[in-house]
Design a binder for these strands. Sequence first.
DNA 1: ACCATATTTTCCTATATAGGAAAACGTCAA
DNA 2: TTGACGTTTTCCTATATAGGAAAATATGGT
Lengths: 136, 136
Amino acid sequence: MVGGVARAATTSDAFNAIAEPQRRDILALLRSGEWPVSDLAQELGMSMPQASKHLRVLREVGLVRDRKAGKQRLYGLDARGLRPVHEWVGGFERFWAESFDRLDAYVRDLKQARQGADSQDPEQARQGANRARREE
Amino acid sequence: MVGGVARAATTSDAFNAIAEPQRRDILALLRSGEWPVSDLAQELGMSMPQASKHLRVLREVGLVRDRKAGKQRLYGLDARGLRPVHEWVGGFERFWAESFDRLDAYVRDLKQARQGADSQDPEQARQGANRARREE
DNA sequence: ACCATATTTTCCTATATAGGAAAACGTCAA
DNA sequence: TTGACGTTTTCCTATATAGGAAAATATGGT
């Protein structure tokens, strides 16, 4: 076996599970309560097997719980698995507003530094960037 | 063409781009400033081509910006694209703590309702679940 | 047991990776 | 120009989908 690992399984973690738009729709819908597969599929305009497969993925990742209710099966939200995702992304919150300014500031900083000493050393340039951003 | 749409492209949106752990590592590292590909690859223990490919994906989604710096190319973070992700996931924040209680509460509610009238109608059951959760 | 309803599970197909290796491309320096 | 260094781009391969259709599995009612 030489090639391939392809992409990680959708069931590997919440990140992969929510990469699919339809699964995000399902999760959003489930905020309104438990739904049987058939109703859920119709509401979201997808085929029943399709909905069932997506729910399976969500279940294996733990974002959804199911329980029997007579002839049908009700799916409910278990959002705890989304917390790590929220926290990871939240780690970038402070960079949203700065994203523009940071680059601009860096460029200005670099130009000034260049007038003083003609520093072309890339490592220095990187350090300069770090300094400009007051990071690390 | 009968089959096949496979998974959406990793370059389709931020959700797909950050589904890959290595790409998340790259983004996290870039919070410390701009990095040339070679240093970044070494720091994260991946091959240069690998790093370059991941950076390409991140660039196409707009999470990363690049700029020439002498012989090398510096990559910097542009976290604005993560904001929609954070907001979407944030929409589930209130369900994290409740995830357990909600299911328990629903079960209790269902049992009580069953003692009053022997309602086995699934649609009613779903509505009951919704009511129990004071949602939608 | 038999039937109708609800849901899941095969099959089958085309696509999109992710990784390794090697080749191609760019850029600066002498 | 030649060379060295840094980065990107093919090739190639195995895998993991996502979708549609059809078959297989429950589950409850009569």
